[in-house]
């Protein structure tokens, strides 16, 4: 091989045969260093699939269904902002909508799509007002389902129960429960204060 570099300016490399492959043995067969025959390929494929399928076949053969840990549900007769099935399926979307509505659009309250009740879009004041400590509800289910790296909501948002606040202080913090909410406090602020999300259809 010449020590000249490959040349993009001329049509062919300088002093190079055109189009010929040099990686050929004298008899013209491709000279691969080692060629895996079909049997090896299938063996490899099988091993790969076996490895990839580990969670499946292990669960089928030896696994027992993991116990769903009991979630700490709100005491008394309370309804969530949307019905349970919707919340189970779409709470990440709802929380993201709330987050962007409050932080980015300056909106304040949410009108439930299932019964028209109104509540502030607040993780601490609305969600935790009923659910109490996040460890017994959010974390427990997320741990069970192994979703997400870690719930980092609580790096910033406060969990009044986990903070060990007294019952008295808690009720101060968690003041605005849904039913007690006054309707829109017309303040002259031009920011629209309500977010309504189109009713979801089952």
């Amino acid at each position: 091989m010449t020590d000249r570099p490959i040349d993009l300016c001329t049509a062919n490399g300088p002093g190079r045969p055109t189009g010929g492959r040099e990686n050929r043995a004298s008899d013209g067969r491709p000279r691969f260093i080692g060629y895996a025959g079909p049997s090896k390929i299938y063996l490899g494929l099988a091993a790969g699939l076996l490895g990839l399928g580990f969670p499946l076949w292990y669960a089928l053969a030896l696994g027992r269904p993991a116990e769903m840990p009991p979630l700490e549900m709100p005491a008394g007769d309370v309804r969530c902002v949307e019905d349970a099935a919707y919340m189970r399926a779409h709470h990440p979307r709802l929380l993201r909508q709330w987050r962007d509505a409050v932080v980015r659009d300056g909106l304040d309250s949410y009108v439930s799509a299932c019964d028209g009740r109104k509540c502030p879009m607040s993780l601490t004041r609305t969600c935790l007002a009923c659910h109490g400590e996040h460890r017994g509800f959010c974390d427990r289910c997320h741990d069970y389902a192994r979703v997400g790296p870690k719930l980092d909501c609580w790096d910033c948002h406060l969990d009044p129960v986990a903070k060990g606040l007294s019952q008295n202080r808690r009720s101060q913090v968690l003041r605005p429960r849904m039913t007690e909410l006054p309707t829109d406090s017309g303040t002259g602020s031009r920011i629209q204060t309500t977010l309504s999300i189109a009713p979801h259809q089952p």
């Binding site: 490959i6 040349d7 993009l8 062919n12 490399g13 190079r16 045969p17 055109t18 492959r21 040099e22």
Partner: peptide, 20 residues
């Protein structure tokens, strides 16, 4: 790609010049 065509002793693909 320029190394690959060098290895194979083939001229580099034409579009490579556009990249250059």
């Amino acid at each position: 790609f320029s190394l690959e065509s060098e290895r194979q002793g083939a001229p580099p693909p034409g579009w490579l010049k556009a990249c250059v």
